[in-house]
């Protein structure tokens, strides 16, 4: 094999890698729409790597147990929402079992745009940054209420048999009620008694609770976006989106 051929093969392989990473995150977003959080860890994460890390605005889950624990809690919350809706609408949902109703209620669209992807020179890891212009109805203590969620997905990947997520940071600037300005005081929808258990729901505590990214407010100083991936040779040479 000549160097020229090797160069061309590398060009092709890297292009296919970045396409695969876009596809991976597209599938992740589709699973979130479909309330398949319970499958995300197995489907997309480097689940045997203890360095896995999942970050939100106010903390990090670190390690397989804590990261998968978050997703299990998210799936449990989906089940709780469905059961509360079944209680509220017995004539429509009352005859349906738990498995049958799972997924009813929340609708969380996290579309991903503006990918900037770098594959490491050694081909073992990759980094990607996406903008996420979300519209999300989690269903909370006030019942179904849609929010605009504007933020970022910043992801480190590791190549195993296929590309897998090593670190994922999903942070928002705006998480604000649709139909209201995020620049003005929010007028919350009143809590509803039929959804009271959701007011008591808590995700597992973060492995490390800290402000990863403060939410937007009219008094917030500018907070830089997660760093744009830069060309790098091996992961130890570059920054991490993990803790």
């Amino acid at each position: 094999m000549t160097n020229k051929t090797q160069d061309l093969e590398t060009m092709v392989a890297r292009w296919e890698d970045q396409r695969e990473l876009k596809n991976l995150m597209g599938k992740y977003a589709n699973c979130v729409v479909l309330n398949r959080e319970g499958e995300l860890f197995d489907l997309f994460w480097a689940k045997d790597d203890e360095d896995v890390c999942l970050a939100f605005n106010d903390g990090y889950y670190k390690g397989g147990l804590d990261v998968s624990g978050y997703y299990e809690a998210a799936a449990g919350r989906n089940a709780l929402v469905a059961s509360l809706l079944r209680d509220r609408f017995p004539e429509k949902l009352g005859a349906m079992g738990d498995d049958e109703i799972y997924g009813i209620g929340p609708f969380k669209v996290k579309p991903m745009s503006c990918p900037v992807i770098e594959i490491a020179g050694d081909g073992r890891t990759a980094k990607g940054l996406w903008y996420c212009q979300g519209a999300s109805n989690e269903v909370g203590a006030a019942g179904p209420v849609a929010n605009w969620t504007w933020g970022y997905f910043a992801v480190d990947f590791v190549r195993q048999n296929s590309w897998r997520i090593l670190h994922l940071m999903h942070v928002n600037d705006v998480d604000s009620t649709c139909g209201q300005s995020w620049g003005k005081p929010q007028v919350p929808y009143p809590d509803l008694p039929e959804f009271a258990p959701l007011g008591e729901f808590r995700y597992p505590p973060y492995t490390k609770a800290l402000t990863v990214r403060p939410y937007y407010s009219p008094g917030r100083p500018m907070v830089p976006a997660p760093r744009i991936p830069q060309p790098y040779t091996t992961f130890s040479e570059t920054f991490s989106y993990g803790f």
Binding site: F107, T177, S181
Partner: peptide, 21 residues
């Protein structure tokens, strides 16, 4: 089609719940 609403004048989830109840 998943979500249809008017640009920031409505809340598609709360509106649907209000309609159903």
């Amino acid at each position: 089609p998943d979500i249809l609403t008017r640009l920031d004048a409505l809340n598609w989830a709360a509106e649907d719940y209000a309609r159903l109840t």
